[in-house]
Nucleic acid binder design. Structure first.
Length: 596
DNA sequence: ATAGGGTTAG
């Protein structure tokens, strides 16, 4: 018996499970047999006689399992799979899909599987990772082949920036006992680090250690670099030690990451730690390279220790190591923050004489330096210079200038730059808007602020925590803390995480309005949401109480912050001096702290 | 497949 094959609907799919539930499969197999056998079908597919295939197929849904069972060439299987999906609108189950992929793996047709999976993860209606792994687990008996598929899938997720799915795939692979390779795990770690999900990167690394994974140096370096970027220097050094224990020698990249971490960590004596690392490199016979020097030079420049930076610069030259544009950009930035613009400009000329081309970053540094030294028109001219040089202006070029104009209250010029960047095809980002919003906030022109926020939304740019903090600060400074609180709710609705700054700003606003109760409520809220009061929180509250001459309360808060081990900062001591001692109240705190 | 430079909030 045969169903008429007039339409897709009548082709067998219609029917059986509802006539004979539970017997659907066998009923189909014996009664709605294909009018065409698997090998003939394969033959037609190989010749790409698609209209013939279409005409002779009685039950398209059955063709694929039939071909799989008859051991048809995997290449033809795939070809039929893709064709039937596109031309017949069939959506094959995950199980069948992965059985096809498995047959390709068995024939070592790896590139085909790779490109298939690449497409597969780009799918608009993605399958859940768990259902995909279930399909992988049943597509074969060979754990080795299943591992290969899982590994390729993970790489596809990662390459397509589906890091969350990649992460889940990593753990599922572990649950099923599949073995992954550094080819997919290193890029996963790299993505996690780039997305600042350092906790996840660390967990993946720990899991790899637990699974006795076959590492290479890159695995360790990626994790160490991520930890350094997150400022977790102790953990980074621990991983470097583990690396040694597992038989790998840290290389120049490992050390450069650690050096950069220490340079950026700040704190007193950080450069001694850097020095210790350099000495360890020397002991291990690892020469410093240009990145090492650049990192250290940049560290000193940020400290405004130009002397030390120039000493290293000199050392480089003595070793015949050629500085590059990055070296110069750091030094130029250093001179700019030292208000030595003449020297900064001279370095740009030196670059040219060495055959190094100043790039857009060089110009951005110089423009920023000119702006910070109040030379806005010179900075504006330098933007034109950069363009004349044929350098592509970056969004940062514009942001730097827009911010400078905004900070000088020259909003018309700021807006005209905003227009100019649009004309030049440079796309504004959240920072661009934040600079403009900051400018209007400082002028109290809230109507323009709302207008900018609306414009952002229109462009699909989401306000970030800086946008919110800026606006909240302005509202608080204009006696509208209550409206600031409404924005706090708005942040949460838009899944923007408030920071200490957000809460502290609101508290300060309420304190200025004399509403201490509301300020304390904000602190409660902040702690309820897992943010502990910090030094600034206490400074704000102590000052608020002092202003209302509630000295005992202020004193109690001061003691509370000491009990919590919070460090008093410059602002704290100023408050103590100006709001307490000068007004005749001597706080009862430890003498040594008071003397500090 | 891993390292270095430029912009925004208290």
């Amino acid at each position: 018996m045969r169903f008429p094959a007039k339409s897709k609907l009548s082709g067998g799919r219609f029917s059986t499970s509802f006539l004979f539930p539970g017997k659907a499969q066998s009923f189909r197999l014996c009664c709605i047999a294909q009018s065409i056998d698997a090998s003939t079908l394969a033959e037609l597919v190989s010749k790409q006689h698609w209209s013939e295939v279409k005409r002779r197929l009685r039950n398209p849904a059955l063709a694929l399992p039939q071909m799989l069972d008859s051991g048809v060439d995997p290449g033809l299987l795939l070809r039929y799979f893709v064709w039937s999906r596109k031309e017949l609108g069939l959506s094959h189950s995950l199980d069948l899909t992965f059985r096809v992929l498995h047959s390709l793996i068995c024939s070592k047709m790896y590139p085909k599987v790779r490109s298939f999976l690449d497409q597969f993860v780009k799918d608009d209606t993605p399958h859940s990772v768990s259902s995909v792994f279930h399909a992988i687990s049943t597509c074969s008996d060979s754990i080795c082949n299943k591992s290969i598929i899982a590994d390729m899938l993970l790489l596809s997720y990662t390459k397509n920036m589906k890091t969350r799915q990649g992460l889940e795939a990593f753990y599922r692979a572990g649950d099923y006992g599949f073995n992954l390779s550094i080819l997919s795990c290193n890029p996963l770690l790299n993505n996690l680090v780039k997305e600042r999900s350092i906790d996840d990167a660390e967990r993946v690394y720990r899991e790899l250690v637990r699974r006795r994974f076959v590492f290479n140096a890159i695995t360790f370096n990626t994790v160490i670099n991520g930890l350094c970027k997150a400022g977790r220097l102790n953990k980074a050094s621990n991983v470097a030690e583990e690396m040694k224990a597992l038989g790998f020698s840290p290389n120049v990249i490992t050390y450069n990451s650690l050096i950069d971490g220490h340079c950026k960590a700040g704190g007193p004596g950080k450069m001694y730690k850097v020095d210790a690392i350099v000495q360890e490199m020397a002991r291990n016979g690892i020469p410093l390279n240009v990145v090492t020097y650049n990192t250290m030079i940049h560290g000193y420049c940020k400290d405004e220790n130009l002397q030390a930076a120039l000493k290293l610069f000199d050392e480089m030259r003595k070793q015949d190591m050629m500085p590059n544009a990055i070296t110069y950009n750091s030094l130029i930035g250093g001179f700019c923050s030292n208000r030595e613009l003449d020297k900064a400009l001279r370095l740009r000329d030196e670059m040219l004489s060495l055959g190094l081309s100043p790039n857009i970053v060089t110009y951005n540094v110089l423009i920023g330096g000119l702006c910070k030294n109040g030379m806005l028109s010179e900075a504006r001219m330098m933007l034109d210079d950069a363009e004349t040089e044929g350098l592509g202006l970056s969004v940062i070029t514009f942001n730097t200038l827009i911010d400078a104009y905004s900070k000088s209250g020259r909003m018309e010029e700021a807006l005209s730059l905003h227009q100019l960047m649009h004309d030049k095809g440079v796309v504004p980002n959240v920072s661009t808007y934040n600079c403009l919003i900051g400018g209007f906030c400082r002028e109290g022109k809230m109507a323009s602020v709302w207008e900018l926020l609306r414009e952002m939304k229109e462009k699909g740019l989401n306000a970030d925590v800086i946008s919110y903090n800026t606006v909240i600060d302005s509202l608080c400074n204009h006696g509208m803390s209550r409206r600031g609180m409404i924005l706090l709710d708005d942040m949460l609705n838009n899944s923007v995480n408030p920071t200490h700054i957000t809460y502290n700003t609101l508290m300060e606003g309420y304190c200025k309005e004399g509403n201490l109760r509301a300020a304390l409520k904000v602190r409660e809220l902040m702690e309820k949401r897992g943010r502990r009061a910090n030094t600034v929180t206490y400074n704000v509250l102590i000052k608020g109480f002092c202003k209302q001459s509630k000295m005992e309360d202020a004193n109690r808060l001061l003691n509370e912050m000491l009990e919590k081990g919070l460090l008093l900062n410059k602002a704290t001591f100023e408050i103590i001096k100006e709001e307490m001692v000068e007004k005749g109240f001597v706080p009862d705190i430890d003498g040594h702290l008071y003397n500090a």
